[in-house]
């Protein structure tokens, strides 16, 4: 089992996924942060995927 990473009383390093404003606010606070511009997969693809996983 993967150990939980230390969070309290150490440097916070953040991956921001979604709203860009949060990335900018973290940067303003001097936090190490990277931003993921998240695009949900198209619906059809997801349905196809579940059909496929049923078949395979």
């Amino acid at each position: 089992m993967v150990e939980p990473r230390k969070l309290f009383n150490t440097e916070v390093k953040v991956v921001n996924v979604g709203l860009r404003i949060f990335y900018e606010d973290l940067k303003k606070q001097g936090v190490k942060v990277v931003h993921v511009n998240y695009q949900p997969r198209p619906k059809l693809e997801k349905e196809l995927e579940s059909k496929l996983s049923e078949l395979l």
């Binding site: 390093k13 953040v14 990277v34 931003h35």
Partner: peptide, 26 residues
């Protein structure tokens, strides 16, 4: 113009010791 990623794995490769994710997707 700003560096950003389109994928969680790539983002984690750039910040491998991240200890928190802030998620605001639908």
């Amino acid at each position: 113009g700003e560096a950003e990623f389109y994928d969680v794995d790539m983002a984690l490769a750039a910040l491998p010791d991240a200890n928190l994710a802030l998620i605001s997707v639908p």
